[in-house]
Simulated scan of single mutants.
Amino acid sequence: MRCGTRYGALLGPLLAGGDLPDLVERAAHGLGLPERGRYAVVVLGAPVPAAAVAEDPDVEVLDADGTRWCWCGSGDEGRDGAGGDVAVVLLGAAGPAGAVARLGERGAGPGGMSPVVGSLAELGAARRLAGTALLTCAPGAREVVRLDERLPAALLVSRPELSARLLAEVFGPLLALVPAERAVLVGTLEAWLECGGSVGRAAVRLRCHRNTVFNRLRRLERLTARSLSRPRELVDLVLALDVLRLSSGPA
């Protein structure tokens, strides 16, 4: 394991949910970290790339904007998909968006980042939320995502039995189609959503006639018994699409 044994020893109890004052004080003193500050936790689904850590595992990585990375060792594989490493991040001027960008530049991923917390005592909660963010990454993805940008999907992965029910209830007839036919309809819905509900722009993206897009969407509406023009029914379709994206099966 390339990650710092000193960091793991001092921050590990906090990441596991401990928040006793003596644990916080010992970690802060031993690592030179402020007890209160803008912290986030990153959980990776694969080992951290060598480019993201120092050669000496007990030397922290410091970014130009002042972001400090304390890599603490491997996550608990199976609990949240984390077969990789965990980092406590003291955020710099670029904030969480800058930290996620740096992970992408260093080839890390998939991964999840927690919301910002205000103290070392909150690392346990941040660790759990970072693990939930990781679960919102689609199978095979290399992205590092922030929980704050994936809240609907995070709700879905937090209740897998309800997610499975939602998928079956909304997309049941769609899932009964042959894979190639299903993929065309799902891909058209995705393109339409990404194009802000514009049939014309979706047609350009899909390289087909706008009437083709329109007909595919109407067929999807018939199959799901939900209308894209009714906001509550559109929410059902979008959430079911997220469940499908997060599942390991083919689209």
Score class of each variant (00 low, 15 high):
Arg127Ile: 07
Leu147Met: 11
Met113Ser: 05
Val116Arg: 01
Ala133Ile: 03
Leu147His: 12
Ala141Ser: 15
Leu123Thr: 05
Leu151Gly: 03
Gly140His: 13
Ala133Pro: 08
Ala154Trp: 07
Ala153Phe: 08
Ser119Glu: 04
Leu120Gln: 03
Ala133Phe: 03
Arg128Ala: 13
Ala121Pro: 00
Gly118Pro: 02
Arg128His: 10
Ala125Gly: 15
Ala121Gln: 10
Ala126Arg: 04
Gly118Tyr: 11
Gly118Thr: 07
Val157Glu: 01
Gly118His: 08
Asp148Ile: 04
Cys137Glu: 08
Leu135Val: 14
Ala141Gln: 13
Ala133Gly: 06
Leu129Cys: 04
Glu149Lys: 03
Thr136Pro: 13
Glu122Asn: 03
Gly131Trp: 04
Arg146Trp: 02
Ala130Pro: 03
Ala141Leu: 09
Ala154Met: 09
Arg146Phe: 02
Leu135Pro: 12
Arg142Gly: 15
Cys137Trp: 07
Ser119His: 05
Ser119Gln: 04
Pro115Lys: 05
Ala121Val: 12
Glu149Trp: 06
Ala126Glu: 07
Ala141Cys: 10
Ala121Met: 09
Leu156Ala: 10
Gly118Phe: 09
Pro139Thr: 12
Leu147Asp: 10
Ala133Leu: 05
Leu123Trp: 07
Glu122Phe: 01
Gly118Gln: 12
Leu156Met: 08
Leu147Asn: 07
Ala121Asn: 03
Ala126Gln: 05
Ala125Val: 15
Glu149Phe: 04
Val117Met: 09
Leu151Tyr: 02
Asp148Gly: 14
Leu120Arg: 01
Glu149Arg: 08
Asp148Phe: 09
Cys137Lys: 03
Ser119Cys: 09
